[in-house]
Amino acid sequence: MRIDVLSLFPDMFTGVFGQSILKLAQEKGLVSLNVTDFRTYSTNKHSRVDDYPYGGGAGMVLTPQPIFDAVEDVKQPDAKARVVLLCPQGEPYTQAKAEEFAKEEQLILICGHYEGYDERIRTHLVTDEISLGDYVLTGGELGAMVIVDSVTRLLKGALGNEESAQTDSFSTGMLEHPQYTRPAEFRGLEVPEVLLSGHHGRIEEWRTKESLKRTFERRPELIKEEFLTREQQEWIKEWKKEM
């Protein structure tokens, strides 16, 4: 897979892309991560990439020419690239979208700055608009890092244990169950006995129940009751009585 990031501040990505899973995935040849300063594509004699908005208003707007040229240059001839615009108006980013992106041959992520983008970038260049949440950042760089990380870790061979990605929160539709490790007792706090039992059936039932309970308590909107077993529906009824 190839991921290209278009940014005015490419040095921001050096540390992130050179560490941990992202570094290992590149070394294994699973992903190629490339960062391009789209200012270098400006045909303006001062290398400007922004201008005042028509009709007046506060701030500056990114002009289309440098971004169009940069996207066209990095796009691979035989790949069906997804061109992603990072912006507050975009679709909220989810694990499902990460899984969708991970199936692509190439992602091109555009990091904005200033007041916004020339609308022609939205309407004639990008395939997706993505937002990390209902807040505004200085630029799209941090959002791009999040997307690159969340997509790369889903690539086959990126994680030491392939099951890790499959059981992450949101991958199953519910939040992940509580996790424990050694020691079995720490400052009087003990690991649940069932996890020490060695009984795989009981352990799996406990994890399923705790996952559902955590989702019920923290993110109830994620639960689709029509897909629950009768026993799981009974658990929820009991938890509602305790509220």
Rank of each mutant, 00 (worst) to 15 (best):
I110Q: 06
Y114M: 11
M174E: 02
D134K: 02
G160N: 08
M60V: 10
H113I: 09
E99N: 10
D78F: 07
S150H: 00
P64Y: 08
V84M: 07
D73R: 08
G143E: 01
F170L: 04
P92G: 01
H113N: 09
S171W: 06
V84Y: 07
G56M: 09
N161Q: 14
G90Q: 05
P92L: 10
L132A: 09
G57E: 10
C111Q: 05
L85T: 04
G57I: 09
T172S: 14
I108R: 12
K156Y: 14
E163I: 14
P88H: 04
G55C: 08
G90D: 06
M60C: 08
L125H: 04
P88A: 09
K75I: 05
G59W: 03
H113D: 04
P66T: 11
V126Y: 11
E104F: 15
D128H: 09
T167M: 15
V126G: 13
R153G: 14
E162M: 13
N161Y: 07
C87I: 11
S131Q: 04
P88N: 07
C111S: 07
E162H: 12
A79N: 15
A158W: 07
A158H: 08
E163N: 15
V126M: 11
M174I: 04
D134L: 01
L85K: 06
P92S: 03
E72T: 10
Q106Y: 06
V136W: 02
L155M: 05
A102G: 01
V146Q: 09
R122N: 12
G90F: 03
E104N: 15
E100N: 07
M60L: 14
S171N: 06
F101N: 01
